[in-house]
Design a protein around this nucleic acid. Structure first.
Length: 210
DNA sequence: AGCCAGGGTCTAA
DNA sequence: TTAGACCATGGC
């Protein structure tokens, strides 16, 4: 089995440095909730309608029915509206100040996020990595699919987390880039060529499967 | 028409 | 602790 560092380098060589989710922390929080079990295209469409209303202080005070109406195309709008407002409230506790959040230890922040209804492990880790530069590896459906496809067989998400967190430098940038590379691979080459005919990391695939 | 999309919660065994 | 039902909407 290849180590996580090799996997990262192969993807980096194949696709180049990926973009960051967003430079704005609340955008990351908001979109991370919207995209739960939802196609990214729906999130983009909704985001157009939200426009400059994507401000945490504004969203927190918005009547919940109005927020629900705004995000309806993403599905689960009642649950997601409640969660987004809870997130905005949590952020308000830090004065909407990214630096104040960053000063806190990652495990404390993760616990606080998981305590919010509608925030599970994946969403919490997305927020920690992309909004606050904390090295907490993100495991989503693409990550599991990607590893399985390349012949890895992990017992559970805990095993996947250990594989990445012990095999990579403890660096949020690396975690964020790798997560985005896996995503790009899965929705790009891998989806268009399910048989790996022109897969950029085919060489890696063959090394694994033999 | 039916399935799935970058999840999360709740419940039953 | 784990599997399965349920949540809502849009795109293909």
């Amino acid at each position: 089995m290849q180590n996580a560092e090799t996997l990262y380098q192969l993807l980096l060589t194949a696709y180049g440095r990926p973009r960051w989710w967003s430079e704005d922390p609340f955008t990351v929080m908001f979109q991370a909730v919207l995209v739960q079990n939802t196609a990214w295209a729906s999130v983009e469409k909704t985001w157009e309608a939200i426009g400059d209303k994507a401000d945490p202080a504004y969203i927190e005070k918005l009547p919940v029915e109005e927020l629900e109406a705004l995000i309806r195309p993403c599905g689960f709008c009642k649950a997601k509206a409640r969660t987004v407002q809870a997130l905005a409230g949590w952020f308000a506790g830090y004065g909407f100040d990214r630096k104040k959040v960053q000063d806190q230890p990652a495990p404390k922040l993760r616990t606080e996020l998981l305590a919010i209804r509608g925030i599970g492990a994946e969403t919490a880790d997305v927020i920690l990595v992309y909004a606050f530069y904390k090295a907490s590896f993100i495991i989503d459906a693409y990550t599991r699919r990607f590893l399985r496809r390349f012949g890895y067989d992990f017992a559970d998400d805990g095993a996947i987390r250990r594989f990445f967190e012990t095999g990579l430098p403890e660096d949020a940038k690396v975690y964020g880039w790798l997560h985005w590379l896996i995503l790009e691979h899965c929705i790009g080459a891998c989806r268009k060529q399910p048989q790996c005919e022109s897969c950029p990391v085919r060489e890696f695939c063959e090394q694994i499967i033999g």
